[in-house]
Simulated scan of single mutants.
Amino acid sequence: MKFTVTQIAQVVGGTVEGDSAATVSTLAKIEEAGPGALAFLANAKYEPFLYTTRATALIVSPELVLRQPVGAALIRVADPYSAFTKLLEFYQQTTRTGRRGVEQPSFLGAGSTIGAGHYRGAFSYIGENCVLGENVLIFPHAYVGDRVRIGDNSVIHAGARVYADTVIGQRCVIKAGAVVGTDGFGFAPQPDGSYKAIPQIGNVMLEDDVSIGANATVDCATMGSTLVRQGAKIDNLVQLAHNVEVGRHTVIAAQTGISGSSKVGDYCVLAGQVGLVGHIVLANRTTLAAQSGVQKSVREEGQVLQGYPAFNLKDNLRAAAVYRRLPELERRLTALEKNPLAPDKM
Rank of each mutant, 00 (worst) to 15 (best):
F90Q: 12
Q93P: 06
P69Y: 08
R147D: 14
T97P: 11
D183C: 01
S106E: 07
R171Q: 13
S194E: 01
E128F: 10
R67L: 15
S154W: 01
V65M: 12
L88F: 00
Y125I: 12
I138K: 09
S106P: 04
E103P: 03
R149T: 15
Y125H: 15
V131W: 01
K86P: 06
P62E: 06
G145S: 08
G151I: 00
Y81T: 06
A122K: 11
G71Y: 08
V179Y: 01
T182A: 14
G109N: 11
L74I: 02
A164E: 14
Q68W: 06
I138W: 01
G71V: 11
V77R: 10
V144L: 12
F107M: 12
V155N: 05
V155I: 14
V136H: 03
F107K: 09
V136P: 08
G145C: 07
P80N: 08
R171E: 12
V102I: 14
F107N: 02
F90V: 07
D146Y: 05
E89T: 13
Q170N: 14
V102N: 12
D192C: 04
A160P: 09
I75N: 02
P69W: 00
R99D: 15
H157W: 10
T85Q: 12
P105T: 08
G117C: 10
T94C: 00
P105I: 00
E134Y: 08
F187Q: 00
Q170F: 07
I168Q: 01
G115W: 04
I126V: 15
G169H: 05
H118T: 11
A83D: 05
D152K: 02
S61L: 01
S112W: 01
H157S: 05
G101K: 04
R67C: 02
V144R: 06
D165R: 13
F187T: 11
E134L: 01
P105Q: 06
I156T: 06
F139M: 15
S194Y: 00
Q68T: 09
V155W: 06
L108C: 09
S124P: 12
Y125M: 10
R100P: 06
L88Q: 13
E89P: 00
A110L: 04
I150G: 03
A72R: 08
E128I: 09
L74S: 07
F123D: 11
E128G: 10
N135A: 00
T113D: 01
G111N: 04
A73V: 04
Q170I: 12
P189T: 04
F107P: 02
F185C: 07
D79H: 12
A122V: 14
D146I: 07
T94E: 13
A122G: 08
G151T: 07
Q104V: 15
T182R: 05
G193W: 05
E89F: 11
G133Q: 03
G127D: 03
K175L: 15
A188P: 03
N135L: 05
C130Y: 03
A158K: 05
V102E: 14
A110Y: 00
G117S: 06
G98K: 09
D192P: 02
H157C: 12
R67N: 14
G181A: 07
D146S: 00
G145P: 08
G115I: 08
H118L: 09
Q93K: 13
F123S: 07
G101Q: 11
Y119E: 02
A78V: 14
R147K: 13
G159C: 01
G71M: 04
